[in-house]
């Protein structure tokens, strides 16, 4: 288990009229090398949860383990280590760019880790490649880049720290369909090539279904489900009840299944649907 929480509870605004429990007794564990989707509507606690993984937030009660270590048990060293082990990409990460060149901005994290100049350069180059930016960008000011490029440069800045776990909060928010696909496929490749653990926080069931192996469903400050993609989608109606959107194609196949057609209910992508229909037709297709 690369990340584990035990009875993690977090309240903010304690003692003020705005006191709120953002996480309520959450115990989850994440396997090393897994690609986990985290889903839940706004205010369900998903952003609060991931902010605990690298010690940005301190639990009100409960424990957080990163790589087997209780990060709040000892002095600061464990938390500093956790910060480098778990790379967190927040929403709209392009809003954190600040250096004069893209190179320096990507190098900011590795520099803070105290790496040698040579190692930093190597990491900048690798992460640049992961996000698919060209080398001409390196000497440009990050503010000259287009919206999608800025986003990718910011993600590269976290990848350059070579974290064991890469956590991304809505990395595709606000992008057009091309930008969306590009970012998500880059992250998929990064996961495959580095073998590191990836957590994708998203509102889009479609994106999660296409990318993740397992899903954590957050609802009302608690972890409602943590299971493989098909297992989670079996509870489609429950997911809709808590305000989540199920892919259109999944709803279509659930209806077909209910009407008695011999199709699977576990269809999340158009690829799945195409395969399922073709195999049905091949097998004779009809109900009777």
């Amino acid at each position: 288990m690369i990340i584990k929480t035990e009875h993690l509870t977090y309240k903010y605004g304690i003692g003020t009229p705005f006191e709120k429990t953002a996480l309520d007794d959450v115990s989850v564990s994440i396997k090393e090398g897994d690609y986990v989707g985290v889903i839940g509507h706004t205010g369900s606690g998903k952003s609060t949860l991931i902010s605990h993984f690298n010690a940005i937030l301190k639990p009100t009660s409960g424990k957080v383990f990163v790589d087997g270590q209780d990060i709040w048990q000892d002095d600061k060293t464990e938390r500093i280590k956790a910060r480098f082990k778990v790379g967190l990409v927040f929403q709209y990460p392009e809003h954190q760019l600040f250096e004069d060149t893209v190179y320096n901005d990507i190098a900011f994290g590795p520099k803070n880790m105290g790496l040698s100049g040579e190692e930093i350069e190597k990491r900048v180059m690798t992460s640049l490649e992961f996000v698919g930016l060209s080398k001409d960008c390196l000497e440009k000011s990050p503010f000259e880049l287009s919206g999608g490029q800025k986003r990718r440069a910011a993600i590269a800045g976290v990848m350059a720290m070579s974290p064991k776990v890469l956590v991304l909060d809505e990395p595709a928010a606000g992008l057009d369909p091309r930008g969306r696909d590009e970012i998500l496929s880059r992250i998929r490749d990064y996961h495959k090539e580095t073998g590191s653990t990836v957590l994708l926080v998203s509102h889009s069931m479609e994106d999660i279904a296409e990318n993740a192996n397992s899903i954590i469903v957050m609802n009302r400050a608690a972890c409602m489900m943590h299971a493989s993609v098909p297992e989670v989608f079996e509870h489609a109606s429950q997911l809709e009840k808590i305000g989540l959107d199920i892919p259109q194609i999944t709803r279509v196949f659930i209806s077909l299944h209910k009407l008695g057609y011999p199709v699977s209910q576990n269809i999340y992508t158009v690829d799945d649907a195409e395969r399922e229909i073709l195999s049905c037709l091949k097998g004779g297709g009809a109900r009777d």
Partner: peptide
């Protein structure tokens, strides 16, 4: 709010 977010993002990149 924004300052809060940026601070956290830079902390996540190891800023001290």
């Amino acid at each position: 709010d924004e300052t809060d977010k940026i601070t956290n993002a830079q902390k996540a990149r190891g800023a001290d």
